[in-house]
């Protein structure tokens, strides 16, 4: 295998990764803006204050954006990608739109990548919108595990907590052809 292995982002990633507007896929004043947010927890239920969450999602109509410009957002172009770091409470948040299904009948989800000090490699997961559509991944999981992938709708947003370990440990994903 010649694939480059991953390494932790370490404690000093704030120097290289976060950027202004990284968490604003749309401006909070956008008529369709929702807050997608949550907290990151370790195996003892403590907040993880030094993690980075990236999201990648379709727009409201299910279209996957090919637009550039995430680093200098103009407030109009939807790039579908964002990056946020957790605060002292382990809390992250994005201003975004509710993604549509990329194919008819599919359950929409936000693709999520998790990085943290102490995490030796990035983790992938999916934040699914609640719904009735069948989904191969969700339908194959026992309810307790399935719930870790489901967004909770709130009055003014979407809640998605991430548990790196322990009680309610989030289901993390790997993909074919990925070195393990």
């Amino acid at each position: 295998m010649s694939f480059a292995p991953g390494q932790t982002v370490g404690p000093f990633f704030h120097l290289g990764l976060p950027f202004d507007g990284g968490n604003l896929l749309v401006p909070p004043a956008h008529p369709d803006a929702v807050r997608l947010h949550g907290r990151v927890f370790d195996g003892e239920g403590n907040a993880v204050p030094d993690s980075v969450i990236e999201i990648w999602q379709a727009d409201q109509s299910g279209r996957v954006s090919r637009e550039t410009g995430s680093f200098h957002r103009d407030g109009f172009t939807f790039t579908g990608w964002g990056r946020a770091q957790t605060d002292g409470d382990g809390h992250y948040w994005f201003s975004t739109v509710i993604p549509g299904a990329t194919e008819p009948g599919r359950r929409p989800f936000v693709a999520v990548t998790v990085f943290a000090r102490g995490l030796t490699d990035r983790l992938f997961t999916r934040a699914y919108l609640p719904g009735d559509e069948p989904d191969t991944l969700l339908d194959g999981l026992e309810p307790g595990r399935r719930d870790t992938l489901l967004i909770t709708r709130e009055e003014r947003g979407l809640l998605f907590d991430i548990h790196l370990q322990g009680e309610g440990e989030t289901v993390f994903l790997s993909y074919p052809r990925q070195a393990r």
Partner: peptide, 22 residues
């Protein structure tokens, strides 16, 4: 305290996962 204890679930990528941000 920061590593998952369960195996990662192998899935086929779909939708947005088939693309990278530009």
């Amino acid at each position: 305290l920061r590593h998952p204890t369960k195996d990662r679930l192998l899935v086929d990528p779909e939708g947005v996962e088939l693309w990278a941000p530009a």
